[in-house]
Design a protein around this nucleic acid. Structure first.
Length: 527
DNA sequence: GCTGAAATAT
DNA sequence: AATATTTCAG
């Protein structure tokens, strides 16, 4: 009875000649359907009762590829029986009464599709799909290869299960419907329409069995990915449910750890905390709160803010005196270790060494969430935050004291940007108020090209002038000479570490000479 | 015990 | 490949 794939492949002009069993009491509708089907070169046998249909089916000489069965309130029991008895025959249910519970039961009993009357040509034209689907679906069973056949039946089971879930879910809101369906669903062994399958897959959220070996592992992978520091940027887009879940988890863990901070966090805290969790899990008891002694060190994410602090400290000490322990002291970041600082300092110095000899290397590898800030041909870097209409900030907010008080309250291993004005997202952090006034990158304060901000430019030019003065404090050599020259010629480039920034007083006095009287607080580490 | 450099890990 | 941590000699 069931059309095989081979048959289909050899079927010339498919679906012409498709034999359709039509079970419809209503002569008018039956006639209409028949004529439409016959127009499409389908072969239609119409029956008024199940018994007639049964006998036709049992007649070896006739075999049907697909059935269209009309269901009404008074005949539904018989139709249910018909469905149960003809599970191999793809059966389309049709009715002019759109009773969802009846239809659902039909579907549960194996009907491949429900079509509401009247049946248009469009609806009827593609009924062959069920035949094809059945044929291809049934193919493995016809073959002797055990593994394949097993797989197929597994898949079928999954589908059934999913369908069940689907139905239950859909019926949850309506208990009355629920028992109609639930009684017999379990017996349902049979075909599903392509549509159903698709629907099922869409509904599939990974809760299901079998297949879930795959799903689960995928999910695990996803989780692992999420544990990766890059998670926030690279989410598992294709697994919506998983992503959402993980994201929520992330947010939660982030929040819980943030509670100690009592302030808005940056995007960055989550990945790192997650990362830390992951590491802990990998090396210790999962879910256990890590004790300071036992846990492996959590990787410090040197965010731009943290690094800013670092550079601040280094500048404050001067390169010569900048040693890890003192930097650490000045940074006032709880949980940060001397080792962390030492390591960072090492990198800092190495990079600096690489930078100093020539200009070409004036780029620092950017930390995550950082954006290259050295050359922005099309997007000048500003030393002041843009004046957004919605963000009229008081001066103290634009130039907060350094370091901000919050940072002292940071819990261990949380070094998110310590001070983020509400308007400042990680995306536009480069507009931060310190820039240009503090060397907040690797000794690379970013200042606007003076064409954009003449006022600032003159400010910085004057700073550079003064730097030349302070340069006298250092033993000169060709390299330094070159560097200083360059620093003067290119005031927007970073101030070499070997050059100490001028004192606040001298800056103020210089600025006032140039007619700039308003100096925001917090400059040059003066808090 | 600290520092800085190198090695190693992620 | 970049960057953080760990190791190790001084």
């Amino acid at each position: 009875m069931v059309c095989t794939a081979n048959e289909l492949l050899g079927w010339k002009d498919f679906p012409k000649g498709l034999r359709v069993l039509l079970l419809d009491e209503d002569i008018n509708s039956a006639t209409e359907i028949r004529s439409k089907l016959e127009e499409m070169d389908y072969v239609v046998s119409r029956f008024c009762s199940e018994n007639e249909a049964f006998s036709a089916i049992s007649d070896e000489s006739k075999s049907f590829h697909v059935a269209i069965v009309e269901v009404r309130e008074h005949n539904k029991d018989g139709r249910f029986k018909f469905l149960e008895s003809t599970k191999d025959l793809p059966t389309i249910i049709t009715s002019d009464v759109n009773c969802i519970s009846t239809m659902m039961k039909c579907i549960a009993l194996g009907a491949v599709e429900f079509l509401e009357k009247p049946l248009s040509e469009d609806k009827l034209r593609n009924i062959w799909q069920h035949v094809a689907h059945k044929a291809f679906n049934a193919e493995p069973k016809d073959q002797t290869e055990p593994s394949k056949s097993e797989k197929a039946s597994d898949a079928s089971d999954v589908d059934i299960h999913l369908k069940k879930e689907d139905i239950k879910e859909e019926f949850n809101e309506n208990p009355e419907h629920n028992d109609v369906v639930s009684v017999e669903i379990d017996k349902y062994p049979s075909p599903s329409t392509p549509q159903l399958k698709q629907g099922v897959r869409l509904v599939d959220n990974g809760e299901c069995h079998d297949q879930d070996q795959t799903n689960i592992s995928t999910e695990k992978e996803c989780v692992d990915h999420d544990g990766d520091p890059k998670f926030v940027e690279t989410t598992c887009d294709d697994l919506v449910v998983d992503t959402t879940t993980i994201t929520i988890t992330d947010i939660n863990s982030c929040k819980s750890l943030e509670e100690g901070i009592g302030k808005a966090s940056s995007d960055e805290c989550c990945p790192d905390l997650i990362n830390g969790d992951k590491k802990r899990k990998a090396s210790e008891h999962p879910n256990s709160r890590p004790t300071k002694s036992s846990r492996r060190k959590i990787k410090v994410d040197w965010t731009s803010e943290l690094h800013k602090k670092f550079v601040q400290a280094v500048e404050q000490l001067g390169v010569d005196q900048a040693i890890p322990s003192r930097i650490l002291e000045l940074m006032h970041v709880e949980g940060l270790t001397r080792h962390n600082v030492a390591s960072h300092l090492q990198k800092y110095r190495l990079q600096r060494r690489h930078i100093l000899p020539k200009d070409g290397g004036r780029k620092w590898p950017q930390t995550r969430h950082s954006t290259p800030r050295n050359y922005y041909p099309q997007r000048p870097i500003m030393a002041y935050p843009p004046y957004h209409p919605n963000h009229t900030l008081p001066p103290t907010q634009v130039y907060p004291a350094w370091p901000p008080p919050h940072s002292y309250a940071l819990p261990p291993q949380v070094w998110g940007p310590p001070y983020y004005p509400a308007w400042q997202s990680s995306e536009n952090w480069m507009w931060n108020p310190y820039q240009g006034l503090q060397a907040e990158t690797w000794g690379c304060p970013t200042v606007p090209p003076h064409t954009s901000f003449p006022q600032n430019a003159s400010q910085f030019r004057s700073r550079q002038t003064m730097e030349k003065n302070s340069f006298d404090n250092y033993p000169g050599d060709e390299v330094i000479d070159k560097v200083v020259k360059e620093a003067i010629n290119k005031p927007w480039l970073p101030l070499p570490l070997g050059l100490k920034p001028p004192s606040t007083e001298s800056v103020i006095s210089e600025l006032s000479k140039q007619g700039i009287s308003t100096v925001p607080p917090g400059i040059n580490g003066s808090h």
